[in-house]
Structures are given as C-alpha cells and as structure tokens.
C-alpha cells in the first residue's frame, strides 16, 4: 500500500482507509470499510438512506473520530488530524445540507475558503482589499463551477442548485487533493444535473473525487469506480459494470429499485 512504484503518477493512490468503523452507541454506522481513492478517478459511493454514506464522509473529513481503523493520505496516517488540519492537508468536503456563509456574497464565500491557508500572522498584516492572489484563486474556482455571473450576489439569494455549485467552489478554493462531495446533486433539476456531471468529470481529472450519490443511473454514467454501502458495510466495490452484475447488489439493492 502506498508504494509509489506500484502506481503511475497519473492515477496515484491518494487516500485510503483501513478497516474504518464507527459506532454511535449501539448503532454501527460504518463497519470495517476499506477503500482507496486515486487521482484522476471518480469514486462513487451509493447506498440506501441511512447506509452510512455521510458518516463515511464525516470520518474522512475528521468530523467524527473512528471507533477503529486508519485513514492514510498519500501514505501518511491522518486519522488523528482534526477537521481544519485535514482540509489543510488536502482533504476537502462539501456538505449534504448546504453549509455556506449566507450573508456573504458568492465571491466572499469562496475567498474565505481560499484564505484559509494564509498564516495567522500574515492575515493580521494584509489588507483584505489588497489580496490579489486570493482573488485569482477565488475567480478561478467560481468560474470552474460556472457561477461567474452570480459572483457578487449574496449567497442566501442563490437558487438551491447554485448553492450546491458554491459548495463545490468553496472546496475547490482550498486547493485540495481529495474532494469529498456529499450528494452534490441532491434537489437539482435535470439541466443543472447535466452541468454538474460535466463538472464532476472535469474535477476528477486533477483530483481524487469521492462522490456520494443515490441516483443510480447518474452514478453508472459518471463513476470510474463505485462502492455500494449497506448498513455501514461495503457490499460490493469495483467498476460500475462489475457492480451492476454483482449478485449481492442485485439481490440487496438494485432489486429493491426495479
């Protein structure tokens, strides 16, 4: 694991978990999950409601401490890092329930995310109005998610879909290696969904992307690798093709949808 010679740089192993588990009192929300995320790869995690998908994201992002198991980022054990340390290490997440700075404009939201890496002393000494580099990072992230037209609007006035795009722009502005996107398409229309799917594919070209999504058809279209979670455990994992054909998945999950 983590042997650089074993993978080509283009799709190098970026993040992996080993036997990750989490219980809330008696409830086991994550059971012995081992998965790996590679650069240049869109890894989708699907599963019914309550399967533990968000819990997995929260474990990877440092919001929850695992009951057992380890998380490695480029071979380094990051299990004990807290939320902000993980973000700075390169693991950025978006939230299932939109979590933005509502009174601030789109630009200000993203600029804050871009600013996080500035040292505290430097931040005390630089006037916000003069931070050109931050503006550039910000504008790039906003452009990438397609919100340039709305960059000066207060984020509270955006449509739901635009707020989801803003969530992604904010994670992008932190300069991540790994993007953890918790249901970025939830509540989006068909057309918006198309746009986001193109965006997701483009993001996977220079990041390792973990996508949580419950729309099966969508996942089969965009994912390079997928993992099916049921009751916190991995039911199947592999290419969309192999997962589709897995008997266990057919019985436990796809069958229920047909």
């Amino acid at each position: 694991m983590g042997d650089p010679a074993a993978t080509t740089p283009a799709n190098a192993l970026v993040l992996c978990t080993e036997g990750l588990s989490k219980s809330f009192g008696g409830l086991q929300a994550t059971r012995d999950v081992s998965l790996s995320l590679h650069r240049n790869e869109l890894h989708a995690v699907i599963g019914p409601n309550g399967a533990g998908k968000s819990t997995l994201v929260n474990l990877l992002a440092g919001e929850f401490t695992p009951s057992a198991g380890r998380i490695l980022l480029e071979g380094r054990d990051i299990t004990s890092l807290n939320v902000w340390q993980r973000t700075r290490a390169g693991v950025a997440r978006s939230f299932q329930r939109t979590n933005i700075f509502l009174p601030l404009t789109v630009h200000e939201n993203v600029r804050l995310a871009a600013q996080a890496r500035t040292g505290t002393l430097a931040s005390l000494l630089s006037r916000a109005a003069n931070s050109r580099t931050l503006f550039e990072i910000t504008d790039l992230a906003i452009e990438r998610v397609g919100l340039t037209q709305s960059r000066l609007r207060p984020s509270g006035e955006l449509s739901h879909g635009e707020q989801r795009q803003l969530e992604i722009a904010m994670t992008l502005a932190t300069d991540p290696k790994v993007l953890l996107l918790d249901e970025p398409l939830a509540g989006m229309g068909q057309e918006e969904g198309e746009r986001i799917s193109a965006l997701l594919k483009s993001l996977a070209r220079d990041h390792a992307v973990l996508l949580i999504e419950h729309d099966m058809d969508f996942v089969f279209k965009v994912a390079d690798v997928m993992t099916v979670l049921v009751e916190g455990a991995v039911l199947a994992s592999g290419t969309p093709q192999s997962v589709r054909e897995s008997a266990a998945v057919q019985a436990a999950y796809l069958g229920g949808h047909a």
Binding site: A61, T87, L104, R117, T120, S123
Partner: peptide
C-alpha cells in the same frame, strides 16, 4: 485585514470555517 474577514466568517458560520481549513 484578512484576519478581520476570518472573524466575520467565524461569526457567521464557525463550523464551515473549520471545514475550509
């Protein structure tokens, strides 16, 4: 300053501030 912006971010949504690093 940028520090002042960070204070504003904390006032509005401290949880999100941690999540962006």
């Amino acid at each position: 300053t940028l520090f002042g912006r960070a204070l504003e971010g904390i006032r509005v949504n401290e949880h999100r501030m941690r999540a962006i690093g």
